[in-house]
Amino acid sequence: MQRFETKTVVITGAASGMGRAAVHRFSQEGANVVALDIDEAGLKETVETLDPARTATQLCDTSDEAAVKTAIDTAARTFGGIDILINNAGIAVQGDVETTDFETFRKVFAVNVDGYFLMAKHAMPFLLKSGGAIVMTSSVSGIGGDWNMLAYDASKGAVSNLVRAMAMDYGPRGVRVNAIAPTATKTPLAEGTTEDPEITKAFMDRLSIRRYGTPEDMAAAMAFLASEDASYITGVILPVDGGMSASNGQPRQ
């Protein structure tokens, strides 16, 4: 498929995991791709096998508004506009309300929520011109709660409602806004979960498709929501979770 030929896609969190897989997926489907991250070495690894004529990288702390504006303006100038924004950068910490200090709580929100807001805000003028789309990375943790993941859960809940609010505001103006909601996926961010045998057994008891998701699974869902195949879909938080959210939580008999 070449669903994104002539399109320009900006992807955050592109140095590893789902972001790296998204860079490769959109590039394979013909897009010009601008890969953003704070990890310079990881960005270089992400794009080393891709066509340099259709690929650009930029160091960008997405919680810094000046850096975001520069990155967006540079991306638009490099490829003549922006058609798709993939808001994917994210961090996670463990802790409940007593053990999570305020500085940590704010840092999680700065990356997971403020960064998504800032990227959308500064990309929106270009997306309005192109009739574009935004896809964000929320989580099953933005739909329901986890044990001991207060800051992360709160941030992903905010992402889910940011998507819904923006879909309402910008659907009439031609821009669609959606999100994927992964469960634990085999990425560097989730290694503490996916490499732990006891936690893995508990996950497999909940997953109908009995494996962890891969970055490529998530990138495929991002590409679908960004494409014209999803032209009548907006405001959706799409679980990409191996059937986890289909369960009501009761154990198998």
Rank of each mutant, 00 (worst) to 15 (best):
M1P: 12
V9R: 03
I11E: 02
G13S: 09
A14W: 01
A14V: 12
A21I: 00
H24F: 00
H24K: 10
R25D: 04
R25G: 00
Q28C: 05
N32Y: 13
N32L: 02
A35L: 11
I38Q: 00
E40H: 10
A41L: 09
G42N: 03
V47E: 02
T49Y: 00
L50F: 06
A53N: 13
T55C: 12
A56P: 01
T62S: 08
T62K: 01
S63L: 13
D64R: 11
D64F: 03
I72W: 04
A75I: 11
A76C: 13
R77K: 14
T78D: 02
T78P: 01
T78C: 02
T78A: 05
G80Q: 08
G81F: 07
L85I: 11
L85W: 05
I86T: 00
N87D: 11
A89R: 03
I91L: 10
I91Y: 00
A92R: 06
D96H: 08
D96W: 03
V97M: 08
V97T: 15
V97I: 15
E98I: 04
T100H: 03
T100G: 05
E103G: 06
T104I: 10
K107N: 14
K107H: 13
V108W: 04
F109A: 07
A110D: 15
A110M: 07
V111G: 05
V113Q: 12
V113S: 00
Y116V: 15
M119I: 09
K121H: 14
K121Q: 15
K121C: 07
F126G: 00
L128V: 06
L128A: 10
K129R: 13
G131C: 07
G132T: 11
S138F: 04
S138L: 04
S141G: 13
S141I: 00
S141Y: 11
S141H: 14
G144E: 13
G145L: 10
G145D: 04
M149F: 05
L150G: 06
A151W: 08
A151H: 10
A154N: 11
K156C: 09
A158Q: 09
V159H: 12
S160G: 14
A165Y: 06
D169W: 00
Y170A: 07
P172E: 07
P172G: 11
G174L: 09
G174M: 06
G174I: 08
V175M: 07
V175Y: 06
N178Y: 05
P182F: 03
K186E: 15
P188L: 01
A190C: 11
E191I: 01
T193N: 02
D196A: 02
P197E: 03
P197S: 06
P197N: 06
E198S: 11
E198W: 00
K201V: 09
I209Y: 12
I209V: 15
R211M: 08
Y212P: 04
Y212I: 02
Y212S: 03
G213A: 14
P215C: 03
M222P: 02
A223N: 04
A223C: 04
A226H: 04
A226W: 03
A226N: 09
S231C: 12
V236G: 00
I237F: 05
P239Y: 04
P239M: 11
G242P: 07
G242S: 10
G243E: 12
M244W: 14
S245F: 01
S245W: 01
A246G: 10
A246M: 13
A246H: 06
G249W: 08
R252W: 06
R252V: 12
R252Y: 04
